[in-house]
Simulated assay, not measured.
Amino acid sequence: MKKHIFCLATALCMVPALAQAQSADWPSKPIRLIVPFPAGGPTDLVAREAANILREEFKQTVIVDNKPGGNGTLGHAVLAKSPADGYTIGLLVITVAIAPHLGNAPFDTFKDFAPISNMVSMTPIVVANNNAPFNTLAELASQAKASPGKLAFGTPGVATVPHLAAELFQMQSGTQLNHIPYKGATQQIQDLIGGSTQLDFQSSLVVAMPQIKAERIKALAVLSDQRSPQLPNVPTAKESGYPGLVVSPWFGLGAPAGTPADIVQKMHGAIAKGLGSKEVQDRFAAIGASVHPNKSPAEFSAYIKSEFERWGKVIKAANIKAE
C-alpha cells in the first residue's frame, strides 16, 4: 500500500516538471490558428498576418483553419473546446463581447479563453447616397427627427457592429431610423448606390472606400477614435458632436483557457514585436485598420470585459434579438 502511495505522490510531483518541459520545448510542432469567419475577408487577412508573425518568430508552421458559422460563434466554440497545449490558438474578436448578450453563444467569454493580445481594429464608417439631403451627422439627425422611423439605413445584419453603432447613434441623437439588415456589405452598398436606401453603416473601409473614391457615395463620418489616413477629409463622429460614438470592431488573438501562461506570454511578445513593424502596419492601413497591441494579456482581458459590458447595455436598451 505504501509503495502505491509513494508511486502516486512521485507521479503527481512530476506533473509540473513535465508541463514545464513541454513549455520549454514549445513550439515543437505546427500551430493551428482558428479563424471564426470565411477565407478572403478582412478577418482572414488579420489571421494570416498573425500567422506570418508567429511563423517568423518561432520558425514553426502555422496553419490557418477557417471555421465560419453563427456570425463567428462557431469558430470561437471550436477554440474554446480545443486542447490547452499552445498548439491551437485563434482569433478572439468582438463577437465574444456581443454574442453572449443575444443568448446564442456556445462559449463562456470569461471562462473558456486565455486572451493573448488585441491586434487591430477596423474603421467603421457612415455613408450615404449621393442624393441624400444630408452631408453630416448633424444634418442626418435633423432629417431623421423630421420623419421619425422613415429614414432607412442598411447594415450587414442584425447585431453586427454596424447595427450596434447605428443603435448607439439613435440613442445619442434622439432619433428613430428604419433598420434594413442585409446578409453582407456588398449588396448593402449596391442598394445604397442605386438609391434603395439613403444611409449605410459599414464595419470597415474595405467595401465603402473604393465607392467613395469613385464618388458613387458620400462619407458622413468615420466611427474610429481618429480620422483615417485613407480618408483624411472625413471627420470622426466624435468631431461631429457625438463623443460617445467611437466604435471599433477589434481582432485579437487568444488560446483555450488553461494554456500555460509562459506560452501565452511568448505569443504575446511575438505579436507585439510583429505589429511594431512598419511594413505590417502599412498593410493594415491599406484596408483601413490600425494596430492596437496590448501591453499584456491581462490588459487584453480587461479590455474584453469593458467591451462586454458596453455592448451588453446597448443590446438591452435597443432590445436587439438574435435572428
Rank of each mutant, 00 (worst) to 15 (best):
L275D: 06
A257E: 05
A270T: 05
I271V: 15
E299H: 06
A255C: 05
V264T: 11
S296F: 09
N294R: 14
P256M: 11
S277N: 09
G276Y: 08
A286M: 02
D282V: 03
V264M: 07
I287D: 00
H268L: 01
G258F: 05
H268P: 08
E299G: 05
V280K: 08
A261W: 05
E299P: 04
A289L: 06
P293C: 10
A257L: 04
L253I: 15
L275K: 07
A289W: 07
K266W: 10
I271K: 14
H292I: 15
A272I: 15
N294C: 13
P256C: 10
A270Y: 03
V280L: 10
A272G: 00
A285R: 15
P297W: 03
G254I: 10
N294W: 09
E279K: 14
S290P: 00
D262R: 04
S290M: 14
G254Y: 12
Q265L: 13
P256K: 06
A255D: 06
P260T: 01
H292V: 14
D262S: 14
K273C: 00
I263G: 05
F284W: 03
A289C: 10
E299W: 08
E279D: 13
A286C: 00
A272R: 15
N294S: 15
K266L: 09
A257S: 04
A298T: 14
H268A: 11
G274M: 10
M267L: 10
A286V: 11
P293M: 12
I263Q: 07
F284D: 08
V264P: 04
P293S: 00
L253K: 02
G276T: 06
A257F: 00
V291C: 13
A255R: 06
A285N: 15
E299I: 13
K295I: 11
L275M: 12
K266N: 09
K295R: 12
E299T: 12
P260C: 07
K273W: 12
V291R: 06
A270H: 01
F284G: 01
A289S: 12
T259I: 12
Q265I: 09
L253E: 02
V264I: 15
G276C: 10
L275H: 05
K273D: 12
N294Y: 07
F284P: 08
P297V: 05
G288I: 01
A298M: 11
A289R: 11
V264L: 12
K278C: 08
D262L: 04
G269P: 09
M267V: 14
D262Y: 02
A286T: 01
A257P: 04
G254V: 10
R283W: 03
A286E: 06
N294M: 11
K266M: 02
H268S: 09
F284I: 07
A255P: 08
A289V: 11
L253N: 02
